[in-house]
Every structure is written in structure tokens, then in C-alpha cells.
Nucleic acid binder design. Structure first.
Lengths: 377, 377
DNA sequence: TTGTAGGCGTTATCAT
DNA sequence: ATGATAACGCCTACAA
């Protein structure tokens, strides 16, 4: 291969440690040489006060007041002009120290690479920003210890509230945590010690299974996700409800635990397809795992949906474009994130809240098909 | 007793080593009502000082020191015990105000749902946490205005440094920003005003195109991404280099701009496949767009790789499991994020740094195949 | 080793 | 309306 002109590799010299003191800066900025200080580092209320000839407390008041109906007074406009000229930027830290509120919410979300989690997070971040809050994220591992560590760090940052996403079904510190700072679970819930905003996972599991039953399937495998995630266990509970309703007994060998990622789906799929009497349909409790199942099936020569119906969960955007577009349950991920922020702010505001389960719906595509009835054989 | 790594700041003395539960703690704390204070809300250095019978400055010093080789002295252990009993949690805000350093880095990343972006972010978050830094994210839209707003907010939070991911090729405020706070671009770069950690996109574009040329393709379409993203334009530049090297002229109608998401790929694919003399191979500058191309092709009755070779970019994990596993360029997304943090911390430490372009590699799977030579017709 | 004092930038409570 | 003053919780010379 020919030698290739690679991307630029230039040395970057750091901004020379700023020798200029505040005065110099102020003067410079005043001379419309705003280029040097557009970002207003180090400009404080005191500088503005001096320039406008008022006291800092006055500056503080003026800057945090809306423009009165009859416009700004003489000295008020001087303050505002000075702030603009100096490129003042409030020091939120100092304000927070004083007011004891940070307009920051802490978010603990394991596995942010998972597009499901990422969608929820996008909802959270967007809504929080809209409402003037900032988001401090921590994306710990799936283990309790690092999750607790994340919480500790966020608390020491004095967050106003906490959104926990990937918590285990049973998280020992949840209850006491909730007494310290407004805390809300997102996506998953626990045993009721803490309010939660979720999607209706039991309903989703029921709808998925019911769909397969209606297509005539009787042996339905489940890629269940990990046992400690209520998202997975609730969907499986919905599956069981549907089976019971149809008068079918559950075959425990058809329900296999898995991780939430692609490989989890692959492994679970291989296991399900290699039992003596394999299922004719598989419900994977998330889309990526369903893709893993499809991949495993393909390698085993099992063709979907002819030989095997597969249904996923969440309706992430790529599954509509697969060579076999995936039937799935659509859950309102973004909205769940937004809703979580809304509820959390209610809690922060001291108002009582209730847990919510958002509605889900079945999206039928091509990966599920009627079970060839025995009579046709 | 477990401690958190907390970069020179007050160490959190974990109230519970693993086996103790909250109940134990409450008892330890001595008074029943302190049960509500397991999380140490409102406990300050002063409280510890009073309880240990020393001055707050002593408390501060003791808590921020490692245990000496010959163990703690009497009064030192009293301080530590008091901190543990009261469930002390340092107020990072107050410390930051005083020390003028927050051990927080700001991250501006549009489109965090994109799994490419999410992977980079995961690298950032993980590495930052490991090194005792926290991450304040803002995920603005793709427009300059909200991006600048994000930066403003992060600056007012006094972040120690800034990682900018989705910036436009030309972002007017970058240069002055770099003079105010250590700033590093990730994934994309600009015209050299600001250091950047990227993957070697020109090389990647070259490799992809070279692969298709070697397979005998001569009309190679490009799904180019948006013009303002250096990731896209660099990859296209690599494409051009490869064409030139092979002595081929570029057909401008074969290079179509697109968005980075699935729909962008679908639309660009449809356009490319409906020109009079359609390409026999398509290079999509990211995997999700490549999936869109595959979907569009399928609907048009064009079968990959028989009628059309498709190559993507990034090697996100799902593309290996598609029904036609995707040939692609693998770029080290996680590592890019980690590396970015490392470089940024160098900058924060006042050391000179240089831009880096991480290596990429070609991953050949099934979506590319030799072009049926004209002779065979 | 420990205490004293002052200040980081802001806001709240006074008094004027 | 504005000014003076104190305080938020912590850190760090400096002094003892």
C-alpha cells in the first residue's frame, strides 16, 4: 500500500499562563478588545461593581432580575453594560454554595452504549436542559459496589436529585437514600421503596407472547435478560400471564437468562435452538438480543420467520431496516426519560408523586409468522 | 475501611464496609434519629471538629491525608472515627470554590443516541471516573447556537477542561475558547486552532476504497455524511486519494451528502442506486448509514453482495450479526474517548500536547465481493 | 502537630 | 432602591 498522508500532527502550545491581572483584563475588555475576554474568566461581581460604581450586592440583584416593565434605571443599565463589556459569567459553584441548590441532577446509568439506555438518557438530558437543569452522569458497572460509589460522588457534588436507571431489583441502600435526596428510578423499579417511571413491561411481555400465541405458536422460548433487572423479569411475567391465559403450562427449559447485549442473545439463542424439542418462536426481551437470536439461527440454518418467529422489545430504529424487519414491542424510551425528569422535579419541589408505567404497543413486522399447523404436514 | 479515590480531595470514608447494613450503621451512629443521617446530609467539618475536640482545619488536614506508615495518632483517629460516625460527606462545591479546581470535565456531545458517539462517551466517562474526575455532559443539537450555549453552561460550572465532540469543521468560538479553558476536540477536528484526538479518518477512507478497487470495482458510490463533519469529509478525502492513486477520475454524482443516521443512509442509497449508471459498490462513511443502504438496496431488488458491495465504517457490534455481515473499517471508539481524557488532563496539568489520529483497520466480512468482470458477461 | 484568620464568589438579611 | 455585613463549607498560609 502506498504511503498515506495522515491527518495533521501538530504541536499545540498551551495558552501561556495568563500573566495579566484582573485590572489588565478589565481594561482590555473595556477597549472593545473583547476578543481577549469574550469568555469572561475571572470576572466577578466585584469587578462589575467597581466599573459601574455600585456595590456588589446591587450587581447581584440587578443581574438576577427580569427587566422591569418601565425599563432599567440609569444605574441598572450601567451594571448591565459593565457585565456585558467584561464578559461576565456567573460562578454557579459559588451561588450554589450560598443557596444550597445546584440545579443539577445526578444520573446513574450503567451501559450507556446500549442504545436503549442512550435513548432514555437523551430524553433526560434534553428535558433537564430545557428546564434549566444540568446533568451529572455516572455510568458505573452493573455491580452494586460501583453503583453505590457513583451515588456517593454525585451526592458530594450536591445534586438536587437523583435518577437511577440500571439498579438491581433489590438495592439495599435505596430506602435510606430516598430520605436524603429526592430519588427516582427510571426504566427499572424495585420493590416499592422508591418511586419509579417505567414502561409497562408486564403488558409488553404479555402483548408479545399473545401475538405469538395468536399465530399458533405453542412452544415459545424466552431470552429473559438478567434476573436482577425488573425490565426483564416483568416482561417474562407478562409472558407467563399470557401462557396461563391460553391454558398452557410453562416449560422452564424454554426460559433462559441472558445478558442484555448482542452476545447474550447469540448465546441464549443457540441454547434454545439446540434443545431436543426446540421452540417455534422466541421472545427476546430486547431488540439487540433478538438480533443475536436471528444471527444464531442463521448460522444454524434456521430461517426466520419460516422456521422460527422472533419478536424483540423496544423498537430501536435499526430493527426496522434488517433484512427481516423485526416484530417488536415499542416502548417510549425518550418520553420515559423526559417524564422521569418531570417527576423528579416535582419531588424536588416537595410535591408528592406516584410511580408511573408508560404504555407500550406491539409493532408487527416480518420476523413473526403463523406456525405451520400440524394438519398441514 | 473503603475509601474513594478522590484526587486530592476529602476522602469519603464509606460508612459501611461491605458487610454492615444500614441498621448497623444507625446503631453505630449512636442515636436513633441519626438513622436518617446515614448519608451524612448537612454534616460539615465543623461538626466533626466539635465531636473530635479539634479545630476544623485539623479535620480538613487529617481527612485529606493518606494514612501514615506508622498509623494514625490518637487525635487523628478520633477525627476519622467522628467522620465515619456522622457519615460525613465532603461538599465538593465548597472545596472547588476555594481551590479553584473542580475535578470535573465538561463534555459536549450531540447525538448521544448514536452508538458511535455513545461508545466514545463511554470511553470518556470510564477513564475520567478512574482518574477521579467527573463528567458534566451536555448533548445539544447539531446547531452552533445550542452548542455554544452548552459550552457556556459548562464554563459557568467551572469545569477544569472541555471535551468537544460533535463540533462543526468551522466553529468560530473555538480559538478564543481554547485560551480560556483547556479544550480538546474528540472524533472530529477543526482547522487546527484546537488540538484533537481522532481516528485516522483519511486512512480509513483510503482503506475502504482501496479494498473495493482491489475487488475490481470502478464505479464506487459514497454516502458522505454531512459536509460540516470532518469525520465524513476526511473519509471522503481518503476515498479520493485512493481513486487518484488508481488513476480513476471522480464522478461527482457518486458522492452524496447525508445525515449520519439510518434514514440518511436509506435516502442516499436510493439516490445512488437510481442514477443512470449506478455504482457497483458503495462506501458509507458510517455503519448505520451502510445499514440504510442495505435496506434501500433490498427494497429495490438489488442483492448484496452479488449486485452491490457495501462497506461501512466504525464496526459497531451489531454489524457483524447482520444477515449479510458488514465489511467495515474498525475505529477504536472507546480508546479514542479514553485517550481524549488522558490528553485533556495533560493540558489541564499545563503540559504541551499534540493532536493524535488513532489507527484504524479494515475488517472484511461478507458485504463486499469481487466485481463480476465485463469479460464474464 | 495544631490553631488562627482570611478568603474563594455569591446571596440573604439587615439597615439606610 | 442601595449599601454594609455575614455566611455558605472548605482550604491554606502563617503563627504558635
Amino acid at each position: 500500500m502506498a504511503k498515506f498522508p495522515s491527518a495533521g500532527r501538530h504541536t499545540v502550545v498551551l495558552p501561556s499562563s495568563e500573566q495579566e491581572d484582573d485590572t489588565t483584563l478589565a481594561i482590555k475588555a473595556g477597549r472593545a478588545d473583547e476578543d481577549t475576554n469574550v469568555w469572561g474568566r475571572g470576572v466577578t461581581l466585584r469587578h462589575i461593581a467597581e466599573r459601574a460604581g455600585v456595590h456588589t450586592s446591587t450587581v447581584s440583584r440587578v443581574l438576577r432580575r427580569e427587566e422591569p416593565a418601565h425599563g432599567w434605571s440609569r444605574s441598572e443599565s450601567r451594571v448591565i453594560a459593565a457585565a456585558r463589556d467584561l464578559g461576565y459569567r456567573p460562578n454557579t459553584l459559588a451561588a450554589s454554595l450560598r443557596t444550597r441548590t445546584t440545579t443539577t441532577i445526578g444520573v446513574v446509568m450503567p451501559r450507556l452504549v446500549d442504545s436503549v439506555v442512550a435513548s432514555i438518557f437523551q430524553g433526560i438530558e434534553g428535558r433537564a436542559t430545557t428546564l434549566g437543569y444540568q446533568v451529572l452522569v455516572s455510568s458505573p458497572g452493573d455491580d452494586l459496589v460501583s453503583q453505590r460509589q457513583s451515588v456517593e460522588l454525585l451526592l458530594s457534588r450536591q445534586v438536587d436529585g437523583l435518577l437511577l436507571s440500571g439498579v438491581h431489583n433489590t438495592t439495599p441502600f435505596l430506602e435510606s437514600l430516598g430520605r436524603v435526596v429526592p430519588t427516582l428510578l427510571v426504566s427499572r423499579h424495585d420493590e416499592g421503596t422508591c418511586p419509579a417511571v417505567t414502561a409497562d413491561d408486564r403488558l409488553g411481555g404479555y402483548l408479545a407472547t399473545h401475538h405469538l400465541l395468536e399465530l399458533g405458536h405453542r412452544r415459545i422460548g424466552v431470552v429473559a435478560g438478567p434476573a436482577w433487572a425488573s425490565t426483564g423479569t416483568d416482561r417474562v411475567a407478562g409472558y407467563r400471564t399470557a401462557l396461563r391465559e391460553a391454558g398452557l403450562a410453562e416449560d422452564p427449559s424454554l426460559v433462559v437468562e441472558s445478558s442484555f447485549d448482542l452476545r447474550g442473545g447469540v448465546e441464549a439463542g443457540e441454547r434454545l435452538l439446540s434443545v431436543s424439542n426446540p421452540p417455534t418462536a422466541i421472545f427476546a426481551v430486547n431488540d439487540v438480543a433478538a438480533m443475536g437470536v436471528l444471527g444464531a439461527a442463521r448460522r444454524l440454518g434456521v430461517i426466520a420467520p419460516r422456521d422460527l418467529s422472533v419478536i424483540g422489545y423496544n423498537d430501536i430504529d435499526i430493527v426496522a431496516e434488517l433484512s427481516v424487519p423485526l416484530t417488536t414491542i415499542r416502548s417510549p424510551l425518550r418520553r420515559m426519560g423526559q417524564q422521569a425528569v418531570d417527576v423528579l422535579l416535582e419531588m424536588i419541589g416537595g410535591r408528592p408523586v406516584e410511580s408511573q408505567a408508560l404504555p407500550v404497543e406491539l409493532v408487527v413486522r416480518d420476523s413473526t409468522a403463523p406456525h405451520p399447523s400440524p394438519g398441514h404436514h
